[in-house]
Design a binder for these strands. Structure first.
Lengths: 186, 186
DNA sequence: CGAGTATTTGACAGCCGTCAATTACGGTGG
DNA sequence: CCACCGTAATTGACGGCTGTCAAATACTCG
């Protein structure tokens, strides 16, 4: 179970490379994404400490994975796992449910609803403390939510104006009115 | 492996119900979707003959599944499968990849690109014949692509005007310029 | 053949993306 | 410790795509 360190922005895998192992995030954050021919990017998931990513339907990767900030991972070769299917199935199913929920956000929610959903997700995945870090840039958030970075920024400003959240620093969020944020996602 | 017949529009399962079996489509088409509180709907997938759906991360369904038209399915109890994990893992992984590709469409492609991607997907999944049926309504297509039904209709009209496709009947598509359609998705 | 539904088409408004400029932050070196 | 520089984030102006509302047309089924 070898550990690796990934500097900010470094590639972990890319489409076409061998998918012979999967990864556990030890610290930091990983973004998994696809690109269109003209460079438009859709981040399908961020992975935080403790989360597993990198398994594929076949033996090749179909996505890019990069360290968002300084990140360390543990990688496990698929062959080294006694019962691979039993290990991966629950992970794959959870990923599937997450992706399907994300589809609802991208397909049917407007910009404020998307940002609210994102903040609540980050809140819950980082232990439910009202103050937490955003490991990723506004551009990353935009590419995850299918918005422009300017729109993400504008919604942040609006949420601050409504007293729903506070920015302790550019990347540190404090949720003030949890209820209001939840209502926004319906 | 009991077979069931589902009339058009009938419910196959809904959120909260027991997820103790999964389903294979025999004929017809199934839509799987979620709703927001105000009724906005996102269809996460259509399932055509031969495809499997209905497995979940836990023992409860999180989605609605309905027959699009007259549909028949085979249902298998999860407990009746010898090695459940080995059977379901490839299906779950394929579903995950599909969902992630769909995320790119919803997050980063405009209306014509989305419709083109949808038509190509239907084309490929129905055997690659240039003429094929759309089992679902414009509303269903819209809720799958995160568009309004009017926008779907307008894009259809435009594609016909450009000589890229023909509507043999309202639900029967003939793709005339495959190349042009592919280019639209990048 | 007729009723009801599905689809198409049109007019118009609004949300959000793009382009651009300004401000704020953070890290580095003096 | 502070000044400086490069990057990230914010803010503003404006246009276009797409949603909404509404009406007309086409289709399907009984």
């Amino acid at each position: 179970m070898p550990a690796s360190f990934h500097p900010a922005g470094s590639e972990i895998f890319s489409p076409g490379s061998d998918a012979n192992c999967f990864y556990v995030v030890k610290f930091g954050c990983v973004r998994v994404y696809r690109l269109l021919a003209d460079g438009r990017r859709q981040i399908s998931a961020f992975h935080l400490p403790g989360e597993v990513f990198g398994f594929e339907a076949d033996s090749r990767h179909h996505f890019f994975a990069e360290a968002v900030g300084a990140t360390s991972t543990l990688s496990m070769r698929v062959s080294a796992t006694a019962d691979l299917s039993a290990t991966l199935l629950p992970l794959a199913l959870r990923g599937l449910v997450r992706a399907q929920e994300h589809l609802l956000v991208l397909g049917r929610q407007n910009a404020p609803e998307r940002v609210a959903a994102f903040l609540l997700d980050m809140f819950e995945r980082q232990g439910g403390l009202e103050r937490f870090e955003l490991p990723m840039s506004r551009t990353d958030i935009a590419d995850y939510l299918g918005l422009s970075l300017e729109t993400v920024s504008r919604v942040f400003t609006r949420l601050r104006g409504q007293g729903i959240m506070r920015l302790v620093s550019l990347r540190t969020v404090e949720i003030v009115k949890m209820q209001a944020l939840s209502v926004m996602c319906e």
